[in-house]
Nucleic acid binder design. Structure first.
Lengths: 179, 179, 179, 179
DNA sequence: CATGAATGAGTTTTCATTCAT
DNA sequence: TATGAATGAAAACTCATTCAT
């Protein structure tokens, strides 16, 4: 699965052959099919695992009673840590716009993760801290900024480090709070 | 080329077979190869054309002498209009992280377009209007927010319209300007 | 036809595409089909013309009343001159062992040309000058030596010139005459 | 490989499609590509194997200390035996004038085999038995005669048997020795 | 008569999947 | 359970031939 993650994240689902995955994993081609019904099954399992892991990063120790600011800092820190720990995984799970091969379950899980963000936003709005608009607008806003930062580092337009990451976080925060 | 754009943007480069493109275009498979040396050649030509078009949207009538705020509104409006006019094209040109098939020329063109954004940011920073950080950080920030908004509309998490777009623009602006 | 000759002789029948022939000839692809029913028709016409030309080289001014030695010198000189005048043509007509695309007529013509050689041999045998064996054995003997010399020059194992050619001719003669 | 040899020798490299080879071999098309990187790779491997085999025929038990005449008889006998044992292979390896698909290695091997012949000729010349000219001229002379005899048998102009073969050998010998 | 874009069957090659060992 | 050669359908690409202009 590690081999599959690396290959899929670099080359895309259709860009990788199953024998190549097996080879990189040091097993026989046929063995892949002892664990996964099909290539689609494999990619969905991978997606599921890594999206679940991201969900776990968000939910574990989430400071439900802390201030909105603290919660945002927590979320950003978890997003950063996940991406730092598993850059291939982040690349993989965030590059599936074309993912006609993802199951309903996987798409639903993706939605769940967004819902965590929106839940946070609603709380901040109720507390009078965050601007009142469609929660997804706020979530997409800071998540999009993060994703672009990550992509920019992959394309050598930016350096990946915690300082830059926090700088972008603070840009986002400045926009999110009520004036 | 229209058929190829639609298919590539929905299914990705490796997800589309040449006969499918030909069929959608209403021509024979072999005819594709009368116009393009290879599938890679086709995707690169497509990328080039649509990225150039985006560049043109930015540069045509750019208000070089207007205020930073006006310039930002212009840029956002052009980004929105391009995406509104050619959503498939925007999807296509912004979904190429895995694009091992893009030529150096195409990657250089992509960089040129980012440079337009950075040029704007430097101007705003010189004018004392925009926060002083790495210009790409600002560019990536608002561009990432826009891309995520667009993606959210594709996934039915958001509605595509000018009001929402401008709301995000204003979120970005709030973050970009000096306190 | 000149373009076709050059291409066929260098790359073989199956190694050349009709549009390539047209391009080298400076005409349109379709024009080829105004003059030839098919690619096979073209290759057969070419073969016919150049084999006929070789036949003409042998028969024109053949010294029917000269000595066997003089006749052999004539034949060798014509073979040499033909190959010298039209090396591509000689290459082309002598490299058709695989020629499943040649018509009966063309194969019959090839046989006719061999018959000229055998006719000469029979005469020399009747005159008591040449060894008495199957005439084709003598013909194949000196013709094979000539063909190999020509191939050796194409592969840079030999130099193509009249001196070498005559040296091989005299080797052959030494073998052909009765002791 | 046996199927490929038969097809290539009869129809030429470009005259044979890979599925045809697979079919004749009783395997699936794809299986061909489990053993050979490409059709070109296959033809080169074939050429290599059969040319090496011919080289082996010449070199094994070569009577280095025997008379020139004995050596020539040995060489001719090996050439005859190889062609008798593997007529398709001989046809295949000697019909590659157009072989733009052969690698440098294969062409070098072909040269090596010619060098064996030249080595023999130099020895015979040093012993004062063979005429003194460019060794390749002698090699090409008798080899060309042999090849033409073989081709004549394929075209039904000659009968393939040891008597005819030896008759041609003796014709060659008569020409090669000093008067 | 010349053209050359269009055709689609055929070519080389790839690859997800199977299955005998 | 692990293997990896075998499979054959499908992919990328070619090319002999046609035909509207």
């Amino acid at each position: 699965m590690a081999a599959a993650l690396n290959l899929f994240s670099e080359l895309g689902f259709h860009g990788v052959a199953v024998p190549r995955i097996a080879k990189d994993a040091g097993i026989a081609t046929g063995s892949v099919y002892n664990y996964f019904k099909s290539k689609e099954d494999l990619v969905n399992e991978l997606f599921w695992i890594w999206k679940q892991k991201l969900k776990g990063y968000y939910l574990t120790d989430f400071p439900a009673d802390a201030s909105t600011r603290m919660q945002f800092e927590f979320i950003w820190q978890r997003l950063h840590k996940y991406t730092d720990d598993f850059p291939q995984a982040f690349l993989f799970i965030e590059d599936h716009l074309h993912a006609s091969y993802l199951t309903k379950d996987c798409l639903a899980l993706e939605e769940e993760v967004f819902e965590i963000g929106r839940y946070f936003v609603r709380g901040g709005q109720a507390a009078g801290v965050l601007r009142v608009t469609d929660p997804q607008m706020i979530v997409g806003f800071f998540f999009g900024a993060f994703v672009q930062y990550f992509k920019d580092t992959r394309s050598n337009r930016q350096i990946w480090n915690i300082e830059n990451s926090l700088a972008i976080r603070d840009l986002c925060w400045a926009a999110m709070v009520v004036e």
